[in-house]
Amino acid sequence: MRILFSFIAVLALVLIAYAGVKTANLQFLFGVVVPYAAIALFICGFIYRVVKWGSSPVPFCIPTTRGQQKSLPWIAQNKLGNPSNTMEVIGRMFLEVFLFRSLFLNTKTEMTSSNRVVYGSEKFLWLASITFHYTFLIVLLRHTEFFVPTAPFFLDIIKSVDGFFEIGLPRLFLTGAVLLASTAYLFARRLYIPQVRYISLAADYFPLVLIIGIAITGMLMRYVYLTDLVSVKVLALGLLSFKPVIPEGIGPIFYVHLFLVSVLLAYFPLSKLMHMGGVFLSPTLNMANDSRMTRHINPWNYPVHVHTYEEYEDDFREKMIGAGIPVEKEGVVNGK
């Protein structure tokens, strides 16, 4: 059901955009209004979510510790697994954000036929994730040819490496194919591993199906149902310079692609995709394990009224002396 829901949702989005453009001629809605709304939602929603996280106090010092913490000088510290200062935290964060280290070190648990639990290395999740994220980034950078009037310096390099094998015409960009393959793997993984399937929700399937839909419509437009690129760029630059125009001769598949991307942008701040900002605000990752050097004050702490022993003795000194109880400050009356 959760899987079917995601498929039906994405299919409905495709049909809405296709029918809207093909039969109702709503080019202005799908080409101008929806993209603007989506970009506004994306940027404002993203900032809202991050500010909300930033305003949540972290009660404890809770970094995840992977390896030996800083201890006596002759005990080697695992600096990137168990950072004790800001520089080491930055090092660990870099490895996490750019190389997905925690996924790389991920292990799998399996029960053998003789009912023994065994643990093993599991690199495919890491491989599919990292190829998916980086190919998505490259595909996005490749799209800058539509976003800016003159191409940025990296565009030629990316396109020549990406289309290196010159397969077909327009030549195949490898990142597009790898993007599709890795998202397909990530989706199939959720279906075929029983434990993962059990914990997967519609919110896990939907973004994957949506991204697969974006990749498929994009590749269809590039390789099969070619559309007039000049008109597409006129539309894109019109949007980006706040002088929107709807040129003639853009096929409905372009509007489907654009609508799916708009939905992804608008959905982004509402969903698990916010891990893009969230990874930096994750206390288990961005805190240094220095609780033996610095006291972590819980910002939640309610200001408790404390009655110290000194105050207690000041209050009851005479009665204590009268009862023969030893006091710390003798000969002092009422605290003076």
Binding site: F147, V148, P149, V234, L237, G238, L240, S241, K243, V245
Partner: peptide
């Protein structure tokens, strides 16, 4: 990057 470049949309 598109600020003040209205002509490019033509």
């Amino acid at each position: 990057f598109n600020m003040g470049k209205s002509k490019t949309a033509e």
